[in-house]
Amino acid sequence: MLHIKSIVKSIGEFTLGPIELTVGNEILVILGPSGSGKTTLLNVISGILNMDDGEILIGGENISKEPIEKRSTAIVFQEDTLFPHMTVMENITYANVGREDIKKIIDIFGIGKILDRSIDTLSGGEKNRVSLARAIVSKPKVLLLDEPLSSLDHPIRKRLSIDLRKILKQIEIPVIYVTHDRDIAWEIGDKIAIMSGGKICQIGTPEGIFKNPKTVVAAEITGESNILKMVVIKRNGKEHIVEWGPYKLEARVDGLENDKEICVCVRPENIVLGKQKKGKNWMKGEIVEKIFKGHRYAVELDIEGVKDQIRAYASLKQNENIKLEKGITLGVYFPKESIQIVSNK
């Protein structure tokens, strides 16, 4: 179990933390945009950077003052950090472990045939497998992964991320995986922590965070989102009426006062497109752009009476049925559950 207690680290103008985090024998993905402090957090946990304040405990033992080599926190970087003057086997056994310990890991990563090869002859995917195998062979108490798959081509990355999750689940130690790639986060993480401006702004299961993002950053990094400004005009228990331009929409938002301006997120996949209808939460929108996305279409819509442009998705079948074309006007429906309030802080 990894406990991070109120750690703070300032580097110039940037401040990481204070951060509180508990990671059991699970895979925690830290998802955040560039410059949010993900790598700094890993560097502080691994001991590469000294923290200004706080404590780090692994299995109840305070390792805050220990040097890197005494922390048992193997780190795998985004860049290739295999030792180029050693063979694959020499790299894997670098951590002073017995050969019997490594056989299983070599089999799991499928690198048995390249053990005698020099590092400069390996492909990107092979290098990643060797780096990860080397880190796991060292029997760390915590494994820190700093975007280790980001340099790979999409198909290799996808295949390796599936394999990696299976392997990481087998080793049963706390794993922190840092990335800005939400697809990798969904593939690998048991839990996801959203990081922004040096702080963790939300933590939860992948599904929970996707469905209920608490901040604009969480909404935008976990998927495409329409971030819109609305005003609460009527409150009735959990049911609210929110005003968006000329529209009065039913929404389910907790604990808000009347006349309060709020920021909401509406996921494009939750927006319903159809023939023009009158009724609650129905609006009129004109298609200004239509983008083919492989398994569906994304359409940009100008909503009548508001300045915001929104994005919605339409399936290939819907495209045939409704005849989606640039310039046509159609009905746009926001289900009340789809209107998620988010903090813009």
Partner: peptide, 9 residues
């Protein structure tokens, strides 16, 4: 850093 995180002084 990698070397040290693998336990080497």
């Amino acid at each position: 850093y990698t070397s040290r995180s693998l336990g080497r002084t």
